[in-house]
């Protein structure tokens, strides 16, 4: 059954299918598994970060530190492995611990100091970016045979496409994210807090612990996205991934999640990521269009979706009012 408020998700899905169909009509090659494999790999780090962002936005918050945390993680991992000779797995683990704790700290500040998430994560954004510069201002290349093994691991599709390890990580993160959001008490609490913080608290939801976990989760996934980004570019660079948090927010909103919280699906974010990837792929195929067309199309899509969500809310409220009038 489709709830009225899941309509944006259904719409996004329909738009994606239609857009993909149109692309394929123009460039039949876009149907190839090669294109699909690349699309997934190219957007793996963004997708992982967007899952964390979805939880944050579902709870009615925002996390602006994502891009900076990705950059910090990538520089941190690259320097640890490249300059200090630490085993990649150890570096990954350390990076994940740091980014998760960082998220915890932001969540605690939001909850216990009652500072709006926008402000706390803005400070977090500067802090993480600054810390990345502190580690290294250079682009640090990374080579390690373990990493080569990881990059060499993929599943071949029929038709020559490759499902790389990076894409697999993203798909697993999405799958786990979907289950956590819809099938655990933590997930239910996230929706509850996003729906109405005060009601949730009066209904006995542990708001403090949940808020901290949400931002810790976003921190963890930003760290994971940073690791994937490092593998993807085989380097760490403190100037990289500026504004990625905004791409993630765009994917979340296009995927049908309400910016005010409480309504949305992790699966929607996945479609949002695919749609962004599709636009980029189309531009590459066309060859004459500039890359800023991506931004323009995403901007237009965002506008369309925000208006669509408003309209749906108005419509369902009015329908409810009419029904109540009839009951009287």
């Amino acid at each position: 059954m489709i709830h009225a408020r899941n309509l944006p998700f259904v719409t996004t899905l329909a738009i994606f299918v239609i857009a993909y169909g149109l692309c394929v009509l123009q460039f039949p090659n876009m149907l190839s598994t090669r294109v699909i494999g690349n699309l997934l790999t190219d957007n793996a780090f963004l997708g992982i970060a967007a899952v964390g962002m979805t939880f944050v936005i579902l709870s009615g918050g925002i996390d602006l530190s994502v891009g900076s945390v990705i950059a910090f993680t990538s520089v941190f991992v690259a320097v640890m492995v490249g300059s200090f000779g630490v085993h990649p797995l150890t570096a990954f683990l350390a990076a994940l611990v740091i980014s998760t704790l960082f998220g915890c700290l932001m969540g605690a500040m939001i909850r216990y100091l009652l500072i709006p998430p926008f402000v706390v994560t803005l400070a977090g954004m500067f802090l993480a970016r600054g810390a990345a510069y502190l580690v290294s201002t250079q682009s640090v290349p990374i080579t390690h045979e373990f990493i080569d093994t990881m990059l060499g691991f993929y599943i071949r599709f029929p038709g020559g496409g490759r499902l790389t390890l990076l894409a697999m990580v993203m798909l697993v993160v999405f799958a786990v994210g979907i289950v956590v959001a819809s099938r655990t008490r933590f997930g239910a609490n996230v929706y509850a807090i996003g729906g109405n913080l005060q009601s949730a608290e009066l209904m006995g939801v542990p708001v403090g612990a949940t808020t901290i976990r949400i931002y810790a989760l976003s921190g963890f996934l930003s760290g994971l996205a940073g690791i994937v980004y490092t593998l993807y570019t085989s380097s760490g660079y403190s100037l990289a991934t500026v504004g990625v948090e905004l791409d993630a927010i765009a994917a979340v909103v296009i995927g049908g999640t309400l910016l005010t919280g409480g309504v949305g699906l992790i699966a929607g974010t996945f479609v949002g990521i695919l749609l962004q990837g599709l636009i980029q792929t189309y531009i590459v195929f066309d060859g004459t269009l500039s890359s800023w067309w991506t931004k323009i199309v995403i901007g237009i899509l965002l506008f369309v979706f925000i208006v669509l969500q408003r309209t749906i809310i108005w419509y369902s409220d009015r329908r409810l009012a009419v029904r109540q009038l009839k009951e009287v």
């Binding site: 609490n189 729906g195 109405n196």
Partner: peptide, 13 residues
């Protein structure tokens, strides 16, 4: 919570 289903509201937590 208006954004949850009836059942989710009844058994939240």
């Amino acid at each position: 919570l208006e954004n949850l289903t009836v059942a989710e509201n009844l058994f939240l937590g």
